[in-house]
């Protein structure tokens, strides 16, 4: 198995995402333990700009594939990732566990004859074996696995599960423009339109703070209290399935087994009882705060801090208090 670690570094219009730095930080420690290098791949419009940022994070070779990737096409992205992995002779390929990884990681692993490990929360290397831990059964169990095969392992890492740190010694970060144009057969599935709602709020799956509302909010109007608190904290608003099913919030905000899995530093659960399906989506959060009028709600068992009280009183008070403290 190759010693090089290839990081698929995602960016937004040339600015690397925080998750890219998480991957690079992990990749550095793995590569140094394996006697290999960290390489990175940036894709699509802005790839070259993003590449310029990655040397400071220890990427020694940075591959960019820009031409022909104006429109998202799954198979073209798979081709680019596989091509870069082969040039890098990578033994390990890291993705952040987001929608890109969901779409291409399994295919990349299959084409390279390797394996996929999704949503890793721990990843280390020991005498030629890669060791990883991932939650399964909606977080009710963790499984530890080992990989020693010759073909590369593709691992997707859960956002916020790994800390970020710049390289002590920045690398010169040689940028190499790869020519891996899409083949006509790659365009059997191609994005022809993208709708981006004009939200300035952070993405739920990548947010470091989340404020989520449950059915106890009682109405879509009351969700304004959630949005107010989230905005005061620069947080992403979320919702329980019960709140989504009741029509108080859109499905895109749903956290839980049939929604999004999140892993923030701080998760504030408001009026959420704590059904197992909800816990599945947020139990790995570093700190959990529960606000509920029912002191016996199961969510309190998982909470680091809790407030028992009427959310229509607690939420505005909390929003004001955060605003006051964050301003000072």
């Amino acid at each position: 198995m190759g010693a090089t670690v290839l990081v698929i570094a995602e960016h937004v219009e040339g600015a690397p995402k925080k998750t890219a730095y998480e991957l690079l930080t992990v990749a550095r420690s793995l590569a140094s333990a394996r006697g290999g290098q960290v390489h990175a791949l940036t894709l699509g419009p802005g790839a070259l700009t993003a590449a310029g940022e990655l040397g400071a994070w220890g990427a020694e070779s940075i591959y960019t594939v820009e031409e022909g990737f104006e429109n998202y096409a799954t198979l073209a992205l798979v081709r680019a990732c596989v091509g870069a992995a082969q040039v890098a002779e990578a033994g390990l390929i890291l993705f952040s566990a987001g929608s890109l990884a969901r779409d291409v990681a399994g295919r990349v692993a299959t084409r390279l004859g390797g394996a996929l490990a999704s949503d890793c929360v721990e990843l280390s290397t020991e005498t030629a074996a890669l060791k990883l831990t991932r939650p399964v059964y909606a977080g009710r169990v963790r499984v530890a696995a080992e990989y020693t095969a010759e073909a590369p392992l593709v691992a997707t890492l859960r956002p916020n599960a790994f800390s970020i740190e710049k390289a002590a010694v920045p690398s010169a970060g040689t940028a190499l423009i790869l020519q891996i144009p899409p083949e006509p057969s790659d365009l059997r599935s191609v994005v022809k339109e993208v709708a981006r709602p004009s939200s300035t709020r952070p993405e739920l799956t990548e947010a470091s703070i989340i404020v989520s509302g449950g059915r106890s909010l009682g109405s879509a109007d009351h969700f304004k209290l959630i949005y107010d608190l989230a905005d005061a904290l620069g947080a992403a608003p979320g919702a329980s399935r019960a709140a989504v099913d009741a029509g108080y919030a859109p499905y895109s905000m749903q956290v839980g087994q049939t929604g999004k899995t999140v892993n923030p530093v701080l998760y504030i659960a408001v009026g959420i009882s704590g059904a197992i399906q909800h816990l599945a989506g947020m139990r790995t959060s570093k700190y959990i705060v529960a606000i509920n009028k029912d002191a016996n709600a199961p969510i309190f068992k998982l909470a680091d801090y809790g407030i028992v009280g009427d959310l229509t009183e607690v939420l505005p008070a909390l929003t004001e208090e955060f605003k006051r403290v964050l301003k000072s």
């Binding site: 939650p135 499984v143 530890a144 696995a145 959990i288 309190f300 801090y305 809790g306």
Partner: peptide, 21 residues
């Protein structure tokens, strides 16, 4: 299987937190 399962474990348990009333 080339990704070998070594061990299962329950998720890390949390101690009950601080509740403010």
């Amino acid at each position: 299987p080339i990704l070998k399962v070594m061990r299962f474990s329950p998720p890390p348990q949390k101690t009950p937190g601080k509740v403010i009333t």
